[in-house]
């Protein structure tokens, strides 16, 4: 009885010592894991950011907007076709340009204006992030951005070849897109783009006023700051599909601090939807390839920090 008493008290004494010793050593990490457990909110949803690096993939708009208070200045450039020969210095002698400003009114809503040198065209657009991909419980699988644009050509039609000036309405074209994207992994993002182009005026009989197309885009990161990009617009059967080509672009995004450089090759010369969706006339596989680039510079108009 007494022996058992001693052994028991010895045992409990040891246990006590063990407890006391183990305590400080483990407490540090225990305190942190307790804290983590307590702050882990299973219902928390987080918006997936940076599905694409820029507001454009190549020709296509991406689901991204500049964000609240940010003004983006974009310089888009296309040289001539690579197959134009040494005389044209393989296209580098010719260039078309689009300059544009995009401004984030809110984190979701952006407005933009642009000017293309082709047909002296001004364009204005609205872009709204209707849905944002999220992680967490009841996660939203995709991001959806709505895009609407109108473009007006300011070309003088009153030329010797064309004696009548055109009405203002006939100079207008519209583009509507639903941009649906998913960031599958930190490096891979895909986008689908049902597109409608409405043209108030078409020069030839049989040409469609409304052109429908389905576009697709892709971004695959190679390193943290370099990514491969591609976009493609498939024209649904009709006059445009019979007489023009589907626009294809392949490119590289290079990020350098405050800039994103996008270098690409594409068979489309125009840089707004009304040009590259319904009237791409280059055959990519025949060498009608335009080398081009987009440079975006962001300016902070309103700081996010209060």
């Amino acid at each position: 009885m007494t022996r058992r008493f001693y052994s028991a008290s010895l045992f409990s004494g040891l246990l006590l010592a063990a407890c006391a010793l183990a305590h400080p050593a483990q407490a540090q990490t225990d305190l942190l894991s307790d804290l983590e457990k307590q702050t882990a909110d299973s219902t928390k949803r987080e918006v997936v950011a940076a599905t694409f690096k820029g507001t454009h993939i190549i020709n296509a708009q991406s689901i991204e907007t500049p964000g609240h208070g940010t003004l983006a200045f974009l310089i888009q450039h296309r040289f001539g076709t690579l197959n134009s020969g040494a005389y044209e210095f393989f296209g580098l002698d010719q260039a078309v340009l689009r300059l544009s400003f995009e401004y984030g009114l809110t984190d979701r809503l952006a407005v933009g204006v642009g000017r293309s040198s082709i047909d002296k065209t001004f364009d204005g657009f609205l872009k709204y992030k209707a849905l944002q991909q999220t992680t967490g419980s009841r996660a939203m699988p995709v991001s959806v951005t709505l895009f609407a644009s109108s473009a007006i050509t300011t070309l003088k039609f009153n030329t010797p070849a064309n004696t009548t000036e055109r009405s203002t309405a006939s100079r207008l074209d519209y583009a509507y897109q639903v941009l649906i994207a998913r960031k599958f992994s930190p490096s891979l993002s895909l986008q689908l783009m049902p597109t409608l182009i409405h043209r108030n005026y078409v020069p030839l009989d049989g040409m469609q006023n409304d052109v429908y197309s389905i576009g697709a885009g892709l971004r695959q990161k190679l390193t943290k700051r370099i990514a491969l990009t591609a976009d493609y617009f498939y024209l649904l059967p009709g006059y445009a599909a019979d007489n023009y080509y589907n626009a294809l672009g392949l490119g590289v995004d290079i990020e350098t601090g405050g800039h994103v450089f996008q270098l690409h090759v594409t068979n489309a010369q125009g840089m707004t939807e009304k040009f590259f969706v319904p009237q791409t006339n280059g055959n990519f596989f025949d060498g009608d390839i335009y080398f081009g680039f987009t440079v975006a510079r962001n300016f902070t108009v309103k700081s996010q920090l209060k």
Binding site: H23, P24, A27, Q28, L31, L32, D34, L35, E36, T39, E46, A49, P66, G67, H68, G69, T70, G104, G258, N298, T300, S303, Q304, L305
Partner: peptide
């Protein structure tokens, strides 16, 4: 009481002046 302390923060919660 034990002299211990712990911190944890979600890295994505940092807000910058510039979105980029």
């Amino acid at each position: 009481s034990t002299g211990q302390l712990a911190f944890s923060l979600p890295v994505k919660s940092f807000v910058f002046k510039r979105t980029l």
